[in-house]
């Protein structure tokens, strides 16, 4: 979970210009200033950077970073 979280946080920080230090597992997309379109953009970024296969509909269900990390863990994404 921990290193997977670090990887997701790195992707969010670099793709959206969010301060890396501001990203915690319990951070919501709202907290980070990411709207619904940014979440869909995150799907692409996670696929490209981590080979993670989550789809747009699944991502739309999530509201915080830890949920994304849990999903990646569930589908067996390794970093």
């Amino acid at each position: 979970m921990n290193s997977l979280f670090e990887s997701v946080a790195d992707v969010i920080a670099s793709r959206f210009g969010v301060d890396r230090e501001a990203i915690a597992p319990e951070s919501t997309f709202d907290d980070l200033g990411l709207d619904s379109l940014s979440q869909i953009e995150l799907v692409t970024a996670l696929r490209k950077r981590l080979g993670a296969d989550i789809d747009d509909e699944q991502m739309a269900e999530f509201s915080q970073v830890s949920e994304v990390v849990a999903k990646l863990e569930e589908i067996g994404v390794k970093v």
Partner: peptide, 10 residues
């Protein structure tokens, strides 16, 4: 198509 950004039009 699945790599087209949702930000394309905005």
């Amino acid at each position: 198509p699945s790599d087209v950004s949702p930000m394309t039009l905005p």
